[in-house]
Design a protein around this nucleic acid. Sequence first.
DNA 1: ACCTGAACACCGTTCAAGT
DNA 2: ACCTGAACACCGTTCAAGT
Lengths: 241, 241
Amino acid sequence: MTPPTRKKPERRTDALSRERIVEAAVDLLDQAGESGLTFRALSERLATGPGAIYWHVAGKGELLAAATEHAVTTALADGPDGPGGPGGPGGPAREIHAVALGLFDAVEAHPWLADQLAAQLSHQPSGPVALRVLETIGRQVYALDVPASSWFTATSALVHYILGAAGQNAANRMRARSLGPEADRSAYFDTVAQSWKELSPEDYPFIRALADQGLEHDDRVQFLAGIDLIIAGVTGSLPFS
Amino acid sequence: MTPPTRKKPERRTDALSRERIVEAAVDLLDQAGESGLTFRALSERLATGPGAIYWHVAGKGELLAAATEHAVTTALADGPDGPGGPGGPGGPAREIHAVALGLFDAVEAHPWLADQLAAQLSHQPSGPVALRVLETIGRQVYALDVPASSWFTATSALVHYILGAAGQNAANRMRARSLGPEADRSAYFDTVAQSWKELSPEDYPFIRALADQGLEHDDRVQFLAGIDLIIAGVTGSLPFS
DNA sequence: ACCTGAACACCGTTCAAGT
DNA sequence: ACCTGAACACCGTTCAAGT
């Protein structure tokens, strides 16, 4: 009496698969950064040899793309047109906030993600990641009643700002953390502001003025303020009027 | 009678120097891309050994940063506060156009520059490149009479858009060129639009609508339209009112 | 079909040795 | 002070050989 078998029984639970490889790659990227993602380090985690990965993944480029897609899909899974239904509550401006914050948080959780997302947008603009991001943001731009001639421009401005600002924030947090476990975000900003105040007044009047007003702020509030600023420009009015 | 000697005569005109190395690095990046910049390839061009470069440059990171600084300094050399005097003709909005186009053209001439500039902004926000770009844009934001509380946000939005859109454009041009010498930009956009039209109507309504209206346009006009859109949001009015 | 692991062609960086 | 070039430790990728 053999135990009941399926047509396609899994041999071992720890068998190699594209999904297991991609998830391990995301973990490795989170812990060791982009330079830490190595076929040797990855294969060691998966208890196999470097060559084995090539059976499931074409190469390092595809592996990075797959890791990026995995992370961004998770981030956008609970976005607009999700539980709240199409349009959602609060109108398209609030929906844009939700999507933007989803990406902001994802980039904060995966500091390598901003660069990879930007690379996908630039170098594979018809790839699944680029299309997904463009569609998600663009749909809300459309819902804002932006004239068709501005769809592309408005969507581009939002996407570039979101990725740039989220990447900036993630990099700041990494540096703040590297100052020491007890030093927090505000200590890091104080250090930066201090160094800015020592710049030449002739060459850097604006940067010095920025430092004088203090860099301390709520990152998410500041981030959303930028979103609203672009929305205002796109719609020709305040975002919630 | 020996010829007049200076205190520090150049030994040979082709002697190694940091400047010669950086210029050769820019050339190599332009011709072979970021992956083509190698200490071996670079030292071959300079008729020396790989180790020689380390006497003048600390490592690859510093070399890339120096190449980025060299390219961006050239791009911003003839910007605002140049011949036209502070403020220049046409007001700050026109000045922002000039700076933005300067960076746009520089990124088009050096396709590797967009990624490197973004990396500098993120990872060395107090470095000379980041400060120079922030100061140049921020000064015009200040001239726009933007309230102080929005200085940082407005400058960030502009910088992220400029780098993102310029990088996008440069990547598009590279792909268009790779389609063949005779195929031009519009042929490339037609190909992209065609592939977008074949996407699922349920999943990608916005992208399809974008493709339907045609992707063909003047890149610089489109780019400046995005700038104006952000300026409008920043000032709460049209850029030239 | 899937995995192994040695081998190949590269790379950044170092450093004793030269001039 | 400045340069040489071999050497080291690493990397992505391939591929004959196994199961």
